[in-house]
C-alpha cells in the first residue's frame, strides 16, 4: 500500500484530493500515521513506532490503526500497490 501521490497534505493536518475535490482534517495522531506512510513506512513499522511512543494496549492500537487505514483506503487516499 502507498499513499496517493496526488494528494496535498498541509502541516496542520488538512488533506486535499485534487482529483475529487474531497478534503479531510486529521488529528495529531492521524497526521503522524499519514506522515509515516508518506515517508515509506509499512503498517508494521508504524505500529512499532506508535507502540514505542504511546502508552497503549497493542490490541487496541491495532484495531484503531486498521480502522484508520480502512478510512484512508475508502477515501482513495491510500492505494493498493
Amino acid at each position: 500500500m502507498k499513499l496517493n501521490q496526488s494528494i496535498a497534505i498541509s502541516e496542520n493536518g488538512f488533506i486535499f484530493n485534487p482529483a475529487t475535490g474531497d478534503s479531510f482534517t486529521l488529528n495529531n495522531t492521524g497526521m503522524q500515521v499519514v506522515s509515516l506512510l508518506k515517508s515509506g513506512k509499512t503498517i508494521d513499522d508504524i505500529k512499532e513506532t506508535l507502540t514505542a511512543e504511546y502508552d497503549v494496549d497493542t490490541m487496541i492500537l491495532e484495531r484503531y490503526l486498521q480502522d484508520f487505514i480502512s478510512d484512508l483506503k475508502r477515501n482513495n487516499l491510500l492505494l493498493e500497490e
Partner: peptide
Amino acid sequence: RKQYITDKGKAWGGVTISD
C-alpha cells in the same frame, strides 16, 4: 466539484479539480 449546493441546486461554493 460543487462543495455547497443551495436548495435550488446551485453551487454556492466549488473547487477546481484535476480529473
